[in-house]
Amino acid sequence: MGRSVLVTGGNRGIGRAVALAFAEAGERVAITYRSGEPPRDLVDAGCLAVRCDVTDPEQVEMAFKAVEAQHSPVDVLVANAGITRDNLLLRMPEDDLAAVLETNLVGAFRVVKRATAGMLQARRGRIVLVSSVVGLHGSAGQTNYAASKAGLTGLARSYAREMGPRGITCNVVAPGFVDTDMTRALTERQREAALGKVPLARPAAPEEIAATVRFLTSDDASYITGAVIPVDGGMGMGH
Rank of each mutant, 00 (worst) to 15 (best):
G2F: 02
R3L: 10
T8W: 08
G10K: 02
G15F: 00
R16A: 04
R16F: 01
V18S: 04
L20C: 05
A23D: 01
E24S: 09
E24W: 08
E24V: 08
V29M: 06
E37C: 05
P38A: 08
V43L: 15
D44S: 12
P57G: 13
E58K: 14
Q59D: 13
Q59H: 13
E61Y: 09
A63S: 12
A63F: 07
Q70E: 15
V76E: 07
V78D: 05
V78T: 04
A79N: 10
A81H: 01
G82K: 06
G82C: 13
I83L: 12
T84P: 11
N87F: 05
N87L: 11
M92A: 10
M92V: 10
E94M: 15
L97P: 02
A99G: 10
V100A: 01
V111N: 00
R114L: 11
T116E: 08
T116R: 06
R123K: 15
R123H: 14
G125N: 02
R126G: 04
V128A: 06
V128P: 03
S132T: 12
G135D: 08
H137T: 13
Q142S: 09
N144L: 05
Y145C: 07
A150C: 14
G151R: 00
G151V: 12
T153V: 15
G154T: 00
G154V: 03
A156M: 08
S158D: 07
C170R: 02
V172C: 11
P175R: 09
D179K: 11
T187W: 10
R191F: 08
G196P: 09
K197Y: 01
V198N: 08
P203S: 10
P203I: 00
A205S: 12
P206W: 01
P206V: 02
T212E: 01
F215W: 09
L216W: 01
A221Y: 12
S222C: 09
T225G: 07
T225E: 09
T225K: 05
P230F: 00
D232F: 03
G234Y: 03
M235L: 15
G238C: 13
